[in-house]
Simulated assay, not measured.
Amino acid sequence: MAKIVILFVCVAVMQVASALQCYNCVNCQGDMKTWPKQACGSSGASPPAGYEYACATVEYKDRTTYKTAVDRLCVSAEKKNGKLMFKCPTSKGEPLKDDCPVCQTDLCNSSASIRFSFVALSCVVLAIFLPKYLQ
């Protein structure tokens, strides 16, 4: 039993200790396996006070082609009331939203899909089986 708890703690610490990985591409197209990846904060610099590193997906209408384009990148997102906020940049075109979606799990700025975390899955498994072994 103690080994399971120690294993769970080790997995949780490993996820926290590793740098956040984000897709980093301009007008991302094609197979996402080919999209370049970036470690947020790999330069060693910390984000400014009140900000945290996050992966972002920026959707905008391109100024030259007038087509919708999607950039994926690592950003410093402002943390307000416990929630991360990132104002969509307007440098390449008109953003489709004021606030761009941000997330803080590895490669979470891929196409919209259901994602799961190994730690969350471990918690569910432990929640199911732990009470049976403690009786």
Rank of each mutant, 00 (worst) to 15 (best):
P47W: 04
V75F: 01
R72D: 01
C40N: 00
P95T: 14
K97G: 09
Q38G: 13
K92E: 04
L84D: 01
M85I: 14
R63K: 09
E52D: 06
K67Y: 12
C55F: 05
L73G: 01
E59W: 06
T105Y: 10
P89F: 02
S46A: 14
V58L: 04
T68Q: 07
V70T: 07
T65Q: 00
M85E: 08
C88G: 06
P89S: 04
G50S: 10
C100S: 05
V58Q: 04
P36K: 10
P95W: 03
A49C: 15
L96Q: 04
C55Q: 00
V70P: 02
L84I: 10
T64G: 11
V102C: 02
D71F: 03
C88R: 07
E52F: 14
V70N: 08
D98P: 13
C74Y: 07
P48D: 08
R63W: 09
L96V: 08
P89Y: 04
E78L: 10
C88N: 03
P101Q: 05
L84G: 09
G82F: 00
C74R: 04
P101V: 05
R63C: 13
A45L: 14
S91A: 15
W35C: 14
A69S: 08
K37S: 04
F86M: 10
P89L: 00
E59R: 05
K92F: 09
V58I: 10
A77H: 01
S76E: 12
T105Q: 05
K67L: 09
D71R: 01
K67Q: 13
A49P: 08
N81Y: 08
V75S: 01
G50H: 09
C40V: 05
G50K: 09
C100W: 03
Y66P: 15
R63G: 08
K67D: 14
G93T: 01
K87A: 12
R72C: 00
V102A: 03
K33W: 04
A45K: 12
A39P: 13
K37G: 06
D99A: 15
K33D: 11
G41E: 06
D98W: 15
S46W: 15
K92V: 03
K92N: 13
Y66K: 15
E94P: 08
Y53P: 03
C103G: 02
E52Q: 10
K61A: 07
L73D: 08
S43R: 05
Y53F: 12
C55G: 07
D98K: 15
D71Y: 06
D71E: 15
A54R: 06
A45S: 14
K97L: 11
A54Q: 04
C74L: 12
C40Q: 00
V58C: 00
M85W: 11
T105V: 08
N81K: 13
E94Q: 11
G93S: 04
C100D: 02
A77V: 11
V75D: 03
K92C: 07
T64F: 14
Y66N: 15
T68H: 10
C100A: 02
Y51M: 06
P95L: 06
A49H: 12
T90E: 04
C74V: 14
R72H: 00
Y51V: 01
K83N: 10
A49N: 13
S46G: 13
C88L: 02
P101D: 07
V70D: 11
C40D: 02
A49K: 15
Y60V: 05
R72V: 00
E94D: 12
V58E: 01
T34V: 13
E78T: 11
K80H: 11
M85L: 11
D99I: 15
C103N: 01
E52N: 14
E52P: 00
Y51L: 06
